[in-house]
Design a protein around this nucleic acid. Structure first.
Lengths: 265, 265
DNA sequence: AGATTCGTATCGTTTATCGGAATAGGAGTC
DNA sequence: GACTCCTATTCCGATAAACGATACGAATCT
């Protein structure tokens, strides 16, 4: 076995004891997805305790459907395009999303500026939700699955900062640091130290790095297991809300982040 | 019906035509999750075109398993805790896919045309990932496990070209060389020599062989063991990017292919 | 109250699923 | 190269799970 063993979805033998083929298959997906890396047939055999042919059939089915695919050059299975999209849709639309929206809306009405909830998906910032303040001047931001580069917004930098060391390193090396304003960080060294600063201070800012006249402040959302899974950010026109005043709202954002964090697995 | 109608996961009747109960069930989940609100059984009936008892059984199964639950005070189904957690795990699972996507995205932003990453699976081209350039005129290509014939696209011909001699021969013989445009290669002899040319030159082109007005250039991605396991391709409207100019980007694509190759086991 | 729609239960039929066993494929060793 | 060991894939007959027409109950509308 390569590294650490996989853990089954629920308990030992749980998946194999399931009578429904559909639930067995779903259990396989759960194990695979929790692994966080490419997984071979025999690894899944140990984790699920399902017979070899059954697993093989199930995996072939999912591969055919585009839910899974094979690691090129290898035999191991990884998450496919369709499953990846499904995961995103779940997060956007589950019942908890309603609760999150309520929390967000409350913050917006208290602060009077737009807020958003974002995650990192395939190296890009995706907005799970977004509440606009009732101001005529608004920033139109790509919404609904449209990705945004992480290096130039508060949410993106915050989420980058809380990745594992290796993940962060890899992304930093490969990312294109496109310039949007004179203040956009386009130097990898500068960005790296900015990320360190973010981890220490507990929040990230965007000082007109994406659009001139717009500043943001972002704080982390922790899951129950203490991992950073999302970010809550406040964003406003500097004419109304200078960055310095926006930072004063950090405690309020953190309180909202706690509420939102409790809605994640 | 309450508000707007639901859209099925892929196309009309797609879910109902699926033979596997597992995939049918998954299709139901996809529809439900995309709805973004509580969904009733009869709404799902319309969206999925599945018989009522089948749906009822499927939903009851998922409810029992904790993947779905009922809207409090109503009968409509919403995402359950277990599915919600699953969605989060999918998002975290990114890993290698993230890096590949970043490399692709960077190329797209530099060149300004769409790029994709493809592999050959069971004699068909499967797109692992695909980044669209920000142009209004786009080619909508089947994604997520939907297969495409290799004889008429740059990625396909490139991957064919780098198969072992016997494999290539076998596929060439059994493949149907369907014609899509006047330029589609439909002659086995012509295709065979084209493949030889591709191996020698190190890249493949699609000169409007699948869609008129769209040209592609593809280069190989090598695994650590020196085998061609995938292809990176650039594809653009010839009105913007004539084939001759697209070929000038081959070195850039090759650089991206090296980066992507390093992410494969 | 009657009509209508929607959700749940029943049950004989069918067909996909199951998994042991045999086969093919690959990596490593000598 | 011949051998071994381990993993992935294919085969196939028995079985059980999925299927869906029909019927029934429950809720909502008029």
């Amino acid at each position: 076995m390569n590294s650490r063993a996989l853990s089954p979805a629920t308990e030992q033998g749980e998946i194999a004891n399931e009578t429904s083929s559909t639930l067995k298959a779903f259990g396989v997906l759960e194990v695979l997805v929790r692994a966080g890396r490419a997984v071979t047939l025999s690894e899944l055999m140990h984790a699920t305790e399902l017979p070899k042919p059954t697993l093989h059939r199930t995996l072939a089915l999912f591969e055919e459907a585009g839910l899974l695919c094979r690691e090129p050059g290898g035999r191991a299975y990884i998450v496919g395009d369709r499953l990846s999209r499904f995961g995103l849709d779940v997060l956007r639309n589950d019942g908890a999303a309603t609760q999150r929206r309520i929390v967000l809306r409350r913050v917006v009405s208290e602060i009077g500026e737009s807020c958003n909830l974002a995650v990192l998906h395939k190296g890009a910032v995706i907005y799970l939700d977004r509440i606009e303040a009732a101001w005529p001047l608004r920033l139109q931001i790509p919404q609904g699955g449209v990705a945004m580069s992480p290096h130039c917004c508060a949410s993106g930098k915050l989420l980058l900062a809380h990745l594992s060391v290796v993940e962060r390193q890899r992304l930093l090396e490969m990312m294109a640091l496109e310039r949007f304003t004179p203040r956009t960080i386009t130097d990898r060294q500068v960005l790296a130290s900015e990320l360190d600063r973010i981890v220490n201070s507990g929040y990230a800012v965007d000082n007109e790095e994406y659009v001139l006249g717009v500043a943001c402040v972002a704080v982390p959302v922790y899951s129950r297991h203490g991992e950073v899974v999302a970010s809550v950010a406040l964003q406003g026109a500097t004419a109304r809300l200078p960055l310095m005043r926006a930072i004063e709202f950090v405690p309020r954002l953190q309180a909202a982040a706690v509420d939102i964090g409790s809605t994640f697995g």
